[in-house]
């Protein structure tokens, strides 16, 4: 069957549309990582933004303090990430207007973000989203999402370009997967314990220096946002720029 019928004056009619599709997404690289401690949580991300083989910039913050002792990142397609975080910030502001300045718990923030993501189920935000903060009992909390809003609370999660490089390392170093008590002949699992903030920061730095070595989309700088009951503070460490 002919897809077109010729007509004079080029008034050509198509019986099936010719499709050239504009690609509304791009991959802006970068990787992020969240770890929950006993009474703190950290959310870290590198500061490089790329497209293809070009580095757009060596410093574009990726992790944000969105208020109410919650930090957030949405890593993948940067424009979607920025839009999502903007929307969450705005919702949080209206939550306060509507509820007499009430603090939004991390649990409610987590559920709300699911709705933001799932609301665009059929044109998704192309991002891996993480939030971190303290739960109602004051324990560190990290929530992670897939692009369409499926979420869970975890002890730690890596997202973005080098997630697959970092996550196994975290399984081993945070959840002690495949670690056994010496001399038990691989029979007794190493007992779980909370890591201290110093240990966690060292872990995050190691994870990122390693990812920088092996992934071209990771590097330039590492920004770690640390949430404790005192509030949010930021630490910055340079990474290799090659």
């Amino acid at each position: 069957m002919n897809a077109t019928v010729a007509s004079e004056y080029s008034a050509e009619r198509h019986s099936v549309p010719i499709e050239h599709r504009f690609n509304p997404y791009s991959d802006n690289g970068g990787t992020v990582l969240g770890i929950a401690g006993e009474d703190f949580a950290v959310l870290a991300g590198d500061t490089r933004q790329v497209v293809g083989y070009s580095i757009n910039t060596r410093y574009e913050p990726r992790v944000f303090d969105v208020g109410d002792n919650i930090v957030m990142t949405a890593n993948g397609f940067d424009a979607d990430g920025a839009a999502l975080i903007d929307r969450f910030r705005n919702s949080l502001k209206w939550y306060k207007f509507d509820h007499n300045g009430k603090r939004l718990s991390i649990l409610s923030a987590a559920r709300y973000i699911q709705h933001l993501l799932y609301g665009k189920r059929f044109f998704p935000y192309y991002v891996s989203t993480l939030i971190a903060g303290l739960d109602d009992e004051g324990r560190g909390a990290v929530y992670s999402y897939d692009p369409v809003g499926s979420y869970e609370r975890e002890q730690c999660r890596a997202g973005g370009a080098a997630a697959s490089l970092i996550m196994p390392f975290l399984d081993n170093q945070v959840n002690f997967k495949n670690q056994y008590v010496p001399g038990s002949d691989g029979k007794k699992k190493k007992e779980l314990r909370y890591l201290s903030l110093e240990e966690v920061i060292q872990l995050v730095r190691d994870a990122f220096t390693s990812a920088t070595e092996r992934h071209i989309y990771v590097g330039d700088g590492l920004e770690i946002l640390i949430v404790t009951k005192e509030g949010v503070r930021t630490e910055y460490f340079p990474l290799k720029r090659d």
Binding site: S26, N28, V51, S54, T57, Y59, F77, A79, A82
Partner: peptide, 18 residues
Amino acid sequence: LLGVTYGLSAICTGFGAH
């Protein structure tokens, strides 16, 4: 065109970026 933004001290678009 995608809404991607960034800032730095020297910016070139298109061929200039390379």
